[in-house]
């Protein structure tokens, strides 16, 4: 777990790093994250040249390739504004692993500096924006799945639930073994499909058993995995990224 961060005052501007999964599969979630930040009076800069944080190659052991891709992202954030990432997994990569990945290279200092400005979206909304949400949605039982990277790598088990708790119509239900991994793990799901499947099976059963009508998560990998499992079984229980859920219920 990362040490408690000393949070800055709310800035005028932030960068958003949208992540490749959002770019390709869940772009609305990225846009909703931008809308939530803009509603707080913050100007959002979305560097057009962003692609991917490099994590897929990093966790697969291809560190030369990961470093090349990460390096391409480093220069996208020249001003000292915070960098908001709507994903614990990519946020954890950039905050924790960039310094390791660039250790001993000419860009180490720059990687550390960028890493120090990385915030996961819910973290930023809670600890920096001190956001106040007004719920306009219907009464609903919702389960939150916090990704393992957000929970353990970034130490953010509480921020997602804290935001949902502000929504008057939302009853947050806790699934059994809430802290357990959903089985995504990037290439793990491909290399060990059966083990991964057993994990997501248990996760969906737990969410259903908790009486949830809907689930939200702060990571699109988990969303793709858990949501894909529900859909495969033709279950009505669906999920969405927390940015979309918050925006949908409060706008």
């Amino acid at each position: 777990m990362t040490p408690v961060k000393l949070y800055p005052a709310k800035p005028d501007k932030v960068y958003v790093f949208g992540t490749c999964l959002i770019d390709l599969f869940y772009p609305e979630a990225g846009l909703d994250a931008i809308r939530l930040l803009e509603r707080e009076g913050i100007e959002v800069i979305f560097p057009d040249d962003q692609t991917c944080c490099g994590q897929p190659a990093y966790t697969s052991g291809y560190h030369d390739e990961a470093r090349a891709v990460a390096e391409a992202q480093l220069s996208l954030f020249p001003e000292p504004w915070p960098i908001i990432v709507p994903s614990g997994s990519c946020g954890g990569m950039m905050r924790t692993h960039y310094p390791q990945l660039f250790a001993g290279t000419p860009r180490e200092a720059e990687a550390r500096e960028v890493a120090s400005r990385i915030y996961e979206l819910t973290e930023f909304l809670v600890h920096v924006c001190h956001v106040r949400l007004e719920d306009k949605g219907r009464t609903e039982k919702v389960a939150m799945h916090t990704s393992c990277s957000a929970r353990r790598e970034m130490g953010l088990a509480e921020t997602g639930p804290a935001l949902l708790a502000q929504l008057g119509g939302v009853e947050l239900v806790e699934q059994a073994r809430a802290a357990e991994c959903c089985g995504f793990g990037g290439t793990f799901a491909v290399r060990h499909p059966e083990v991964s499947a057993a994990m997501v099976e248990d996760k969906t059963l737990a969410i259903e058993a908790a009486g949830a009508e809907h689930f939200v998560t702060s990571d699109c990998g988990c969303l793709m995995n858990i949501g894909g499992r529900f859909e495969h079984q033709k279950k009505s229980l669906g999920g969405e990224h927390i940015a979309s859920y918050l925006w949908r219920r409060t706008s």
């Binding site: 390709l24 990225g30 846009l31 931008i34 799901a189 499909p193 991964s196 793709m224 894909g228």
Partner: peptide, 24 residues
């Protein structure tokens, strides 16, 4: 591949976030 043995395939979005941001 093995993904879809147990889950529906993820669907590529019609428009990327890059394009959505531009329109926004």
């Amino acid at each position: 591949g093995p993904w879809t043995e147990y889950r529906s395939a993820p669907k590529l979005a019609k428009t990327s976030l890059h394009a959505l941001v531009k329109a926004h």
